Computed example of a mutant assay.
Amino acid sequence: MTDIRKSTRAFTGWHMTAILVAFFAVIVAVNMLMATIAVRSFGGRVVENSYVASQKFNGWLAQAKAQERLGWRDEVTLNPARHVQMKLNVTGAEMTALAQHPLGRASDISLHLHEAEPGLYVSDRPLPVGRWQVRFDIRHNGGEEHLLREVK
């Protein structure tokens, strides 16, 4: 009987402490992992006032539908020198853009895109390494389109 009590006392001492420490270490590790993943993968936009942004949402949807009716199709990539390239099914367009870091960690970069070949527009300067949201303003034959695309 005394052997059982001794082994029980031994288990409740440092074993319980080790179990508690291990439990909280796992909780902290999982929280750190989740926070890291959330910060690195955040693709949203930080706004000054979320209420005001929510009030404009329906207007933004209407603009998107109007742009879809224009029938313009695009593909945005980075070339090896990190210049923004846009393939567009429209030639002769005037195009400017603003590259923004999703979390505002870097200054905005204004871009002017020229038509390197029919339907292929290339920016005048490269983007630094990282993830960027590029807002394009495209004008062609009285039509105008505003696009938001992400490049990495």
Rank of each mutant, 00 (worst) to 15 (best):
V129I: 08
E144S: 10
V122F: 08
R73Q: 07
T77D: 13
Q100R: 14
G13T: 09
F136N: 00
V90T: 02
T36S: 06
L20P: 00
L20Q: 07
V129Y: 15
V76W: 00
G119H: 02
F23N: 03
R9P: 02
P128S: 04
A93E: 01
I37C: 08
L98V: 14
L20I: 08
G44H: 06
V28F: 03
T12N: 13
L103T: 11
W72N: 06
F136Q: 00
Y121L: 01
W14M: 13
L78Q: 08
N58C: 12
M16C: 08
A38V: 07
Y121Q: 00
E68G: 06
E150Y: 12
K152L: 13
G142H: 05
A25T: 12
M86D: 01
H83S: 03
G43L: 06
F23Y: 03
A66L: 11
Y121I: 00
G59C: 10
S41I: 11
F24I: 06
M86C: 06
A81M: 13
G13F: 10
A29H: 05
S50A: 15
K152A: 10
A93V: 10
I27W: 01
M95S: 03
V151D: 02
T17A: 12
V26D: 01
R40W: 07
V122G: 00
L61W: 11
M16L: 13
M86R: 03
K87I: 07
I4D: 02
